[in-house]
Simulated assay, not measured.
Amino acid sequence: MGEKKYTVQDAGPRIEQFLNTVIRLAGFKLNYAVAAGETPHPDFENPDLLVRFSGPDVELLLANKAELLLALEQLTMEAIGMAPEEHSRLCFDANDHRVLRIEELRMSALAAAERVKKTHVPFHFSPMNSRERRILHLALRDQTEVRSESVGEGPIRQVVVVPSDMQTLPEPIRPPRPRPEGPPGRGPGGRGPGAPFRRDRRGGPPGRGRDRDRRRG
């Protein structure tokens, strides 16, 4: 990535101002420190700045594959005016999540490459942000029998691993849309889900047999 563009002295106060506001309004019990970037995997990630979180609510940040941590990172980048191509210069971390995630992505990329070599069938990764897509691409840069490409746009942009000689890239896989839910505890026709259609002793719908008896009497 070359020369460092963001420093603790320059960007640190702006990051702190934004994070202090978010943490206070959300009521999180979190501490953090802004420091110069460092990583044990400089080939995959070499940020200018690293923000490390600690405190009782760290597990909230790391739940659901660190969804909240990544969202907070993205919002901070936008708040301090970082261009999309500069997003790799700022990294948020907690409990060494980034180190573990990089290794997970690297191993997943190599496993996908072996699978494509054997089957000659493209392998799609789930949609992910640009930083994690970059890690997958870097993990496969020395492969000769397969290659990685990014397909799709916006929130469905994803990495696909294909045989090196494949000319036409496959379409991105779109996540399934959530099924609409009706009122809780009710199925079609106003009955509860799976409720049996009750019959009386004569085999018809409830009440019909008794009505016939009344008419005959």
Rank of each mutant, 00 (worst) to 15 (best):
V160A: 03
A79V: 03
E78W: 15
T21D: 07
L30E: 08
L100C: 06
P13D: 00
G81Y: 02
R98I: 01
G182L: 11
V160H: 05
A113H: 02
Q74A: 13
M1E: 07
G12F: 07
P155Q: 05
E59F: 15
K29C: 02
M1Y: 11
K117M: 02
A71M: 00
N64F: 10
K5W: 10
L69P: 00
E132L: 04
E38T: 15
H124C: 03
E181T: 14
A83T: 07
M77P: 10
G182P: 13
T7I: 00
P155R: 12
S130I: 11
P172Q: 06
T119N: 10
E85L: 12
P206Q: 07
P188I: 14
L19N: 00
A112Q: 01
K118D: 01
V161K: 00
R115Q: 05
A35C: 08
R52K: 15
T119W: 07
P155N: 05
P175M: 06
I102W: 07
L25Y: 12
S54C: 08
P172W: 03
R191Y: 13
M77F: 11
P13W: 00
N31F: 05
P180G: 13
E104F: 15
L90K: 04
L61F: 07
P188V: 14
D57E: 14
R24D: 06
R24Y: 08
H120Y: 12
I15A: 00
T119I: 09
L100V: 13
G12T: 00
L62W: 08
